[in-house]
Design a protein around this nucleic acid. Structure first.
Length: 128
DNA sequence: TTTCTTACA
DNA sequence: TGTAAGCA
């Protein structure tokens, strides 16, 4: 299938699909006219890549981990080299930090919302 | 019509 | 990421 169809199937913008190609994450075949030609497997592959990117993994890391995901959507143990493992540990820690920052932000926002609501309630009761 | 590359906001 | 240009 061509890029337009893969885009429709995955919901991933064609722009991003070309970016995955440039980044070496998902390299399609090329038809005679130069159009990118994707196989059915590319659907899962593209979805996996998007998931990893949304999780905040740098493309360089994804590029290294991707071979481990080649088959199914589960991780292939055989493809895990010590270097890859070390890289992933670093990413995991960075992810944990991000989660903690997000948690603090969320809690701060929750407190703010609670405060504003209490103020509104008082205004209403005083007015009526 | 759809896709391609390159470049800029 | 979006968009525009100029092709094939």
């Amino acid at each position: 299938m061509r890029i337009g169809e893969l885009s429709a199937l995955t919901g991933i913008p064609r722009r991003m699909l070309r970016y995955y190609d440039e980044a070496g994450l998902l390299i399609p075949d090329r038809s005679a006219n130069g159009y990118r030609e994707y196989d059915a497997q590319s659907v899962d592959r593209a979805l996996q890549i998007r998931g990893l990117i949304e999780a905040g993994l740098p493309t360089r890391v994804i590029k290294q981990v991707l071979p481990c995901l080649k088959q199914s959507r589960d991780i292939l143990v055989a493809g895990a080299t010590p270097e890859t493992l070390a890289l992933l540990e670093g990413e995991r820690d960075a992810m944990t930090e991000r989660i903690e920052r997000l948690t603090r932000s969320r809690d701060a926002i929750s407190r703010y919302i609670g405060t504003v609501r209490r103020m509104r309630l008082h205004e209403v009761s005083v007015a009526s």
